[in-house]
Each structure stands twice: as structure tokens, then as C-alpha cells.
């Protein structure tokens, strides 16, 4: 974990945006001995189908609770991308559900990673776990948190009957991300702006 990493997760209501953010926060604060503060939009902006949460991860107690310019932005809808992408910190990471989000121009220096999370979730038989696929993918491409801590946080955040499915979803997203990072590294594009991988 780094001294301070600010993350925003955003998408439609019902996609499990808040749970995805909570899993990331829980992994850091409970299973990795760090600090995490999660806040979420409660105002009129939280209505009408959009949903967004902010998580700050740190090795020290977190004082200022809000995120203005995230280091990592995870988007699961076009609207979330349009609204929040301009706020990304220079050098930041954009993670997108690539079949729901069309990425147009991004400022140079932003690393972009795409994942067909909904499709991967459907392959497991339940579209609803797309948020956990995103968390797995996030874990692999950012390398911010110990994958075991994330896995434990996933298991701890869902009802017992849903644990197996959610852990499969996590692993699926994680493997997809790990493969993508590996492929990009072989192409020598690590650390450079990359376009999305569109073929799994």
C-alpha cells in the first residue's frame, strides 16, 4: 500500500458500485493493516440511476475525507466516464467496463485498462457479480493491494451462499487483468498510455 491513494468507483445504481468500493476499503483497512475511508454521494446526484463512491487508502490515518482528483477511476457506465474522467490525476489509472464505456480522447499520461466485466460475469451465470469481476481486475492492474486481502474482503462482504460465486468472479477478473498486464509488458508498453485490449 502506498502512503495515499485516492480511488473513485462509479456506474449505474444496481451494479454494486458501493459494494465494490467497500471491498477495496475493507481489504486495506481490515486485511492489510492500513487505513481506508469510504464516502459516497448521497445527494440528488446519487439519484436517477447513477452511483459513485470514493475510497482513500493510506498507510497513515486519513484526515481529509473526500476525493477531488482520484489516482484510480473505475467506471462501469458511459455517464460515469464522461463525468469523472476529467477529474483523474495526471498519471492516473482509468479502469473501464469496456463494453459499457466508450473511451474517446484521454489526456496523455493516463493509463487505461478495459475489461468486459459484464460478459465475464455472465459466463459465470450471474451478471450481478460484474462489480466483483471489476474488483479482481482492479487488483491485478493496479497492484495496490495484496490479492489475498482483496479475496478475504470479497468473502466477508457477501452472504455465505454467494461466497463461492463472488470468489470465482474475483478470480476471473484478476486473471483477466494479470494476463492483460503481462501481454502489455511483453509488448513493451508498460508505463505508457495504452489503448484497451478488446479481445479476451
Amino acid at each position: 500500500m502506498q502512503l495515499l491513494t485516492e480511488i473513485r468507483v462509479a456506474g449505474f445504481g444496481g451494479q454494486g458500485v458501493i459494494l465494490a468500493a467497500a471491498v477495496i476499503g475493507k481489504a486495506a483497512a481490515i486485511y492489510q493493516g492500513g487505513y481506508a475511508t469510504m464516502t459516497q454521494a448521497f445527494g440528488p446526484e446519487a439519484r436517477g440511476g447513477s452511483s459513485s463512491a470514493q475510497v482513500i487508502l493510506s498507510t497513515e490515518p486519513i484526515l481529509y475525507p473526500y476525493v477531488a482528483h482520484p489516482d484510480v477511476l473505475v467506471v462501469m457506465s458511459q455517464e460515469a466516464y464522461t463525468r469523472f474522467a476529467p477529474q483523474l490525476k495526471p498519471g492516473g489509472i482509468l479502469i473501464a467496463e469496456q463494453e459499457l464505456v466508450h473511451i474517446d480522447k484521454m489526456p496523455s499520461g493516463i493509463r487505461v485498462y478495459g475489461v468486459p466485466a459484464t460478459r465475464l460475469a455472465e459466463e459465470l451465470g450471474r451478471k450481478v457479480v460484474l462489480n466483483i469481476v471489476m474488483v479482481g481486475f482492479f487488483g491485478a492492474v493496479t497492484n495496490l493491494l495484496d490479492p489475498d486481502a482483496l479475496r478475504k474482503a470479497v468473502a466477508d462482504s457477501v452472504p455465505p451462499a454467494m461466497q463461492k460465486l463472488n470468489l470465482q468472479a474475483f478470480d476471473k477478473g484478476f486473471e483477466y487483468g494479470a494476463t492483460l498486464v503481462h501481454t502489455l509488458a511483453e509488448k513493451g508498453e508498460e508505463g505508457h498510455p495504452v489503448s484497451m485490449e478488446t479481445e479476451s
Binding site: A29, T37, F42, P65
Partner: peptide, 10 residues
């Protein structure tokens, strides 16, 4: 306050 009430931490 709303911030503390709606803020999630350990």
C-alpha cells in the same frame, strides 16, 4: 454530522 455519519471506516 453527515460526513462522519456516512463515512465508512474500520
Amino acid at each position: 454530522d453527515e460526513c462522519v455519519g456516512h463515512m465508512t471506516e474500520k
